[in-house]
Simulated scan of single mutants.
Amino acid sequence: MLRKILRFFWKITMWFIVVSVLSVVLFRFIPVPFTPLMITRAIEQKANGEDMHSSHDWVPLEEISPNLQKAVIASEDATFFTHHGFDFNAMFKAYKNNSKGKRIKGGSTISQQTAKNVFLWQGRSYVRKAFEAYFTVLIELLWSKERIMEVYLNSIEMGDGVYGAQAAAQHWYNKDAVNLTKYQAAGIAAILPNPLKFKASGSSGYTERRKSRIIKHMRYVKLDY
């Protein structure tokens, strides 16, 4: 009996590895049509009696303003071009901050966020974090930094039912993503910690202060693709 159980789990593990690697390879070349979070939000909207609404327009990285690319690096992952998926210093600082009972802060890199957004469900469990680490390693091995940024900026939630840079630029500023100014790009980056709560335009004082800090750090970001 034990041997059968072990054989079963071995087969499941091997199938998971094969399917996960193939999916990562596939999304290296084709756009990600939807993410688990998009499905979750649609279910939540239906459960709340709302009309289901979602905007997601995939565009290649060259059609996304360098300002937005710099803004998310300045805001979310200053060591994006030098780490291999994990920023252990940021993770340790986040752990120390959270263990003191302060406002919960994440230490996730853009690579980790991309792995979570594209392949996994939301949540803070150790199981999900383990899968996140696994997919982070895969995309760092099989994708370029340019591709990681492209998928990230086309998949991340940037407002209520708003996913990706193009949809966000249209929603918040009524323009294409390629034409975002530094201030507008910083506005979108500033709401990423909670895009359902914060607004990129007509925003609160807290968000405006975040914008100012992001713009200040953007000048030090070099896009090293």
Rank of each mutant, 00 (worst) to 15 (best):
W121I: 08
A186E: 02
F119Y: 05
R210I: 06
M91R: 06
G107V: 00
I214E: 00
K116G: 07
A185W: 00
L6V: 10
Q69I: 15
G107H: 00
Q184K: 02
W15K: 14
A47W: 04
M1F: 08
R7T: 14
N98R: 06
N194D: 08
M38H: 07
A177I: 00
E140N: 11
S111P: 01
T35C: 04
F9K: 12
W121Q: 09
K96D: 13
F198V: 02
E146R: 12
V18R: 07
K46E: 14
E150F: 02
A133S: 08
T82M: 11
A115S: 02
G106E: 02
N179D: 10
L192S: 01
K175E: 05
K211W: 03
I64W: 01
R28A: 12
M158L: 12
F88T: 15
A185D: 01
E44T: 10
H217M: 11
Q113P: 09
G107N: 06
M158T: 06
I5E: 09
F135Q: 03
L142A: 09
M52A: 14
I5G: 10
S55P: 14
A177P: 04
V24E: 01
M149G: 06
K199E: 07
E132I: 08
Q45H: 12
M218N: 03
I5A: 14
L37Q: 15
I148R: 03
Q69E: 09
K100H: 07
W143Q: 11
K46F: 13
H217C: 04
G202I: 03
T114E: 10
L22V: 06
G85V: 04
A133T: 10
Q45L: 12
V72T: 11
A90S: 06
I110A: 02
R213E: 12
K116R: 10
V19D: 07
K96L: 14
K93V: 09
S75P: 15
H171E: 03
T40Q: 15
K102Y: 08
M52G: 15
I5M: 08
D77T: 13
G202P: 02
F131M: 06
F92C: 12
R28F: 09
Y134V: 07
G106Q: 01
A189H: 02
K4F: 10
N48A: 10
H171F: 03
V137G: 05
K129Y: 04
N48Y: 11
L138Y: 00
E63Q: 15
I215G: 01
G187W: 03
I64K: 05
V127F: 05
K222L: 05
D51A: 15
